[in-house]
Every structure is written in C-alpha cells, then in structure tokens.
C-alpha cells in the first residue's frame, strides 16, 4: 500500500483534492442543469406529468416575437454592463492606498453590492420618476422635463440596465482590489526602474498581470448581464408591454406565472448556450495566453 501510494501520489493527491468539489458541484448543479435540458423537451407545468414534445418548445421560441425583444435587450444589457470592469478597476485604483480613513471609504464603495435588490430597484425607480424623481429635480433646475424613461419602450431597458450596473461595478471593484494586491512587486519595481509611470505602467506592467482577474471580472459581468432578472422584475416587470424583458425574466415569467416550465427551460437552454459559447471563446484565448507565458 505505501508503495502504491508513493508511486501514484503525484496524480492521486491532486485527484483527491479535486474530488470533493467536483462531486458536490456535479451532484447538485450539473445534474440540475442536465435535467433542465431534458425538461425543455417536454410540455410541463412544474407539478403534474411531463409530456414529451421533442423540439416543439424551440420551434415555438423561434417564432415568438417576445424572444427577439428579450434577446435584443440582453445585448443592450451586455453592452452597458461591459462598463463595469473598467469602472470597477478605476475605483480599485483610486482606493488602493494606505491612508487613514481609506478602509472605510473602500467599504462604502462596496455597499451597492450588499443592498437588497428590491430596494435598489425601488430607489432607482425614484431616480427616474417623471414627477418627483432625481432626474426630474435636476432637469427642473434648468426648466426642463425628463422623459418618463421607464414607460418609454425605447429607453426602459437602458434605464434598468444602468441601475443593474451599480452593484456590478462594486463587484468588479472587489475583484480588482484583490488582483492589485496580488501583483508581483518585483515586476513593478523593475518597471519603475525602467522609468515606466502612470498610464504606461498600467498598460504594460500592471494590466498583463491582471489578465486572470480581468477574465473573472468579464465572465461574472457577462453572467450578471444575462442572468439578472430581479431588477427588471422590480423596476418595470418587463414593461411597458414586454419591451424591457430580458431572457431570464421571460423565462421566469413563463415558468412561474404562466406555469410553462418546459418553455421556460427552453429559454434557459438557449441562454445557457449563448453564455457557454461566449465563455468558451474567451476561455480559449485565456488558456492560449497562459500557455505562451509558461
């Protein structure tokens, strides 16, 4: 036995270390994911028996005009959310100083991520309110009136996504803060010796070291942009008349309000495929870069 262990431990220890996480994740999350794909091939109300319908849910989805509205809105969300990593990095750079009081300020930057989504949604509703909102107060100073953003089919999605961006920036800030504290001091020092400063230092010395964190930040931002539905639920309930729904909200509505779990699962599967495609593409780039560095 000891001999067997000695001969094989170079691979057995890693395997044993990997196992608990993998088993738990596989048992709970991956199993549920596969079941989702399975459900999407059925007509099911979430309670009774499932009826096999093959690809009918997908066929219906392809013809559902609401699906394309949601898809378009998800792209808008994605584009707006892409602001979160750079702004989060900016905040992280600002607060990464050891000065008295900085710890409290750092904690405050983090607060948006902590607040209950319901409350954040309601408060942003008060920003946009056409009668008493903050925007109207500001516009009012100049004698103008704001458009009612949340009831305008062209603006509602932008307004909601902007509200969703607020906690997302805080999320990215925490990630970059951790990343900045994992920088290799030797490389920074070498850069300083070479006379690199400010923007050039950031661009050529710091950012390459942050590429791993950057990957996390972008991945979670994509997930956040595609998966979030609660902000939509609180601020517009998808309105006006469905013009601000996103795929996740449409799925929520179909499965929870309309009792169509099969159709909801089909939307989820499509959402899943989009995200996987994006992440696979991005992951390849990352792994390739890692290999060329090693």
């Amino acid at each position: 036995m000891p001999r067997f262990w000695r001969r094989n431990r170079h691979w057995m220890t890693p395997a044993l270390l990997l196992l608990p996480g993998l088993v738990l994740f596989g048992l709970v999350i991956l199993a549920a994911s596969f079941e989702t794909v399975w459900i999407s091939l059925h007509d099911w109300d979430g309670i009774g028996a499932k009826t096999w319908v093959g690809l009918a849910n997908y066929v219906e989805l392809a013809e559902d005009p609401q699906f394309y509205v949601s898809l378009k809105n998800n792209i808008i969300w994605l584009l707006i959310f892409m602001l979160a990593p750079p702004i989060g990095l900016g905040f992280a750079l600002i607060v990464n100083q050891k000065i008295r009081g900085m710890r409290i300020l750092k904690s405050l930057f983090f607060v948006p991520l902590v607040l209950a989504t319901v409350t954040v949604g309601v408060v942003f509703g008060w920003v946009y309110d056409p009668n008493y909102g903050l925007l109207q107060l500001i516009y009012g100073l100049f004698g103008g009136t704001t458009p009612a953003l949340l009831s305008d089919e062209n603006f509602a999605t932008f307004a909601v996504a902007a509200a969703g961006l607020w906690p997302q920036i805080a999320f990215c800030m925490v990630l970059f803060l951790a990343g900045l504290n994992n920088l290799d001091e030797d490389l920074i020092g070498a850069g300083r010796v070479d006379g690199a400063r400010g923007w050039r230092m950031l661009r050529h010395v710091v950012l390459p070291q942050l590429s791993q964190v950057g990957f996390i930040a972008i991945a979670v931002t994509v997930i956040g942009a595609l998966r979030s539905f609660d902000m939509v639920a609180v601020m517009t309930t998808g309105g006006p008349y469905g013009s601000s729904t996103v795929l996740a909200y449409q799925m929520y509505e179909e499965s929870i309000f309309s009792y169509r779990f099969g159709y909801g699962a089909a939307i989820a599967t499509v959402l899943f495929v989009i995200m996987i495609a994006f992440i696979a593409w991005y992951l390849r780039g990352l792994l390739r870069a890692e290999r060329s560095n090693a």
Binding site: G242, E253, Y259
Partner: peptide, 18 residues
Amino acid sequence: DPDMAQEGMTGLQEFMVK
C-alpha cells in the same frame, strides 16, 4: 388561465399606451 392572463394584461397595457 394564468398563461393567458399574463399575455392578456400585457396586451391591454400596450393598448392603453398605443
């Protein structure tokens, strides 16, 4: 039906605006 209600009320809201 709940499914009909969801679609229906969305449509009626749209009618009130457009």
